[in-house]
Write a protein that binds this DNA or RNA. Structure first.
Lengths: 219, 219
DNA sequence: ATAAGTCGGTTGTTTTTACAACAGAAACGG
DNA sequence: CCGTTTCTGTTGTAAAAACAACCGACTTAT
């Protein structure tokens, strides 16, 4: 287990903790390690979960099958990423997606109750882990709310305006760069790239904004 | 402040706590009470926050203005609802939305650090509040992820299939009721009601599903 | 230097959606 | 029971988006 401590140091959950502290906490948090062969399921739709999971090695797909069997990939998990944290709470209900190992993989399991029930002062960093967990899920929450705000606009233009307005607010300037190229932005907003590209140019022609590559200016 | 303890009992944050326990914790959590006149802002876009807020009385609108001044209402807060929790973490950045009191309102403010830094065993229920906070934000997270899953489908049919498939999974049956009427479902999925209605009927005619009012069966 | 690949913009066609307007069925209140 | 309101489905039209295909500018590797 100790061989993966450097990986754990890179996770949000153990941010700010030293190697020795993590090593000490592993026992206190009742960490478990599981290995999965390529092609096997880490979690199945319908299961219940009370663990927070961290990928130590390998690669996972979070994927969903609809009622008629059509599959789509929701997310790709790479080492040091945490998953399952939103479903570990007691009344979370059953999982709605599968988690599949697409490479031979190794996963850490942390018991949620062990984490949020702070133990005696034996491990100094335990309360930091609680905070890290809260911050991580809170950050995820913010990102989800923002994206949902953009996606709930009906038109491509509406989505672009919502997204670009937020970026301008975040950067506190009407001129700013975005971390996406066109295809990535289109994927993020769930629209067609070429349609989005046309819409951007139409907005430019109407004098709403200027842009060059990934640099934008709202007018 | 004590007059609002019954309201706090109804909140997710203090679920499972008795009146006396809440009263005891108010001091330990450094709770503050603020009043806002109708029409005044509780929070402004661009501000930073380190408090978790609970509406004790009145009504709030969470609203956004885009770069060109178009306003839209994101959410309506009613008494006993918590808000701001996702932005209270240290590196959350500035708020992107305004929170406006649309009635004379009273708001509880709880210092986040006071909550997640568990104090001495003086208040027995403090750790329960930490857990409640985690469960609340984790539940919100699940709901957001699910909705985002539906909304990221490009077509109305795709959104319906994603939503209805999840409901069937949750109810563990291909026949189930949904908690929405047509207009509410359309609003939830961010599509036009009549277009959605037509699409549902088309899917029915293709033999994908059956429905009657808010009762559905996937085939 | 050239060939291959990436990126962003453009165009035309087809599909899908929004919108508006209406009609029948069900629910409700007096 | 009747009139009113709410809910749902239907239709036609206009608007918007998806899709596919292509182009030129630029980058990168050999």
């Amino acid at each position: 287990m100790n061989q993966y401590i450097p990986i754990l140091q890179e996770t949000q959950l153990f941010e700010g903790c030293g190697k020795e502290d993590i090593e000490a906490m592993l026992g206190c948090l009742q960490a478990r390690l599981r290995t999965y062969k390529k092609g096997s399921f880490v979690l199945r739709q319908g299961e219940r979960l009370d663990k927070i999971m961290v990928l130590a090695e390998g690669k996972l797909h979070i994927q969903r099958d609809d009622h008629w069997g059509n599959r789509s990939i929701i997310n790709i998990i790479t080492p040091a990423e945490m998953f399952g944290e939103a479903f570990a709470a007691p009344d979370s209900g059953a999982l709605l997606n599968d988690v599949l190992a697409v490479e031979d993989s190794v996963v850490f399991l942390f018991d949620l109750n062990r984490i949020i029930t702070v133990c005696s002062s034996a491990c100094r960093f335990h309360s930091m882990v609680v905070q890290n967990l809260f911050f991580a899920i809170s950050e995820k929450n913010r990102k989800l709310v923002q994206k949902l705000g953009y996606m709930s606009e009906r038109t491509t233009r509406g989505k672009l305006i919502a997204y670009l307005s937020d970026e301008a607010k975040r950067k506190n300037s009407s001129a700013f760069s975005i971390p996406f190229n066109r295809q990535q932005l289109a994927d993020y907003l769930s629209v067609d790239r070429s349609a989005m590209s046309s819409e951007l140019c139409r907005m430019r022609d109407e004098g709403l904004l200027r842009f060059d590559r990934n640099r934008f200016e709202l007018l």
